[in-house]
Design a protein around this nucleic acid. Sequence first.
DNA 1: GCGGAAATATAGCCTTGGCTTCATTGCTGT
DNA 2: ACAGCAATGAAGCCAAGGCTATATTTCCGC
Lengths: 148, 148
Amino acid sequence: MSDDEPDTDQTFHHAERFSRARAAQAVALLEDYAEMIGDLMAEAGEARVADIAARMGVTHPTATKAVARLKREGLAVSRPYRGVFLTEAGQTLADHVRARHRIVVDLLIAVGVPTETAELDAEGLEHHVSTQTLAAFKQYLDTSRRGD
Amino acid sequence: MSDDEPDTDQTFHHAERFSRARAAQAVALLEDYAEMIGDLMAEAGEARVADIAARMGVTHPTATKAVARLKREGLAVSRPYRGVFLTEAGQTLADHVRARHRIVVDLLIAVGVPTETAELDAEGLEHHVSTQTLAAFKQYLDTSRRGD
DNA sequence: GCGGAAATATAGCCTTGGCTTCATTGCTGT
DNA sequence: ACAGCAATGAAGCCAAGGCTATATTTCCGC
Ligand SMILES: [Mn+2]
Ligand SMILES: [Mn+2]
Ligand SMILES: [Mn+2]
Ligand SMILES: [Mn+2]
């Protein structure tokens, strides 16, 4: 700084903000994989690595690596050459993520975003929506549905 | 899949969505650094690595590496032991990112998110807001400001 | 002018999350 | 029963983005 630091606390707030965004991003992949594995189990009865990879738009080894991380974090289990299954914790996460995803899409649509665009943007957006923001979204959808 | 692939195109749409989210994330850091360097130049007349690192909440070598990537992408220039400067392209990006950031914060507040929370979440959210969504946000803010 | 402190650069390490290539296993049809 | 193909696993490469530790340069006060 050119002068004697009149903005030390502002700098701190900036740092805090970026730090939170990085933290959110760090769990984004786990969230998406958990949600998707839950979807596949519900739709097809099982979640195979090949299906996971296809839906994520990545190669099988990449999906396998992600599954390994899920297992390490206690969110999934799997036996060699068998499918992938969510643990209790994984299922809970999947359900939460799915619900949040839907609310984010609905809010985007409610404020005028085209449906297709809302679906696309929500996939990245959702991971940065805090519980407070999610609550505000719910409230908004509720009151705007009621009184129109 | 258990049966003969009735959802091939749905799988494709999923993959497309995740692919877009990954692409957005890949440029998020460049966007934040560009915006911040622009801010520092406007506020202090120059952007030093130490200040950039402090605001990003990161160590100096990390900031230096990010600046190296900015230079590689043609968004910034710098001479050893001197400050960092945005190129024409970098300045354009910074301005665009700053404007988008503000609109995202404003929209969050407009739908009922507490101000402080809006500031925090926007830092991560913004990078996944497409031009279509941004346009919808602008429109919403405009009409809700006009007719209340 | 110079010496010490602060800023900057450099080197090297780690994890994440992509990829390709190749080995191994499972499944399925004849 | 088994041959061959599909699915999975294993190994190893790369870039991004974080870190620590150390070297170098600049700057400022005296
Ligand atoms: Mn997502
Ligand atoms: Mn999602
Ligand atoms: Mn940001
Ligand atoms: Mn921002």
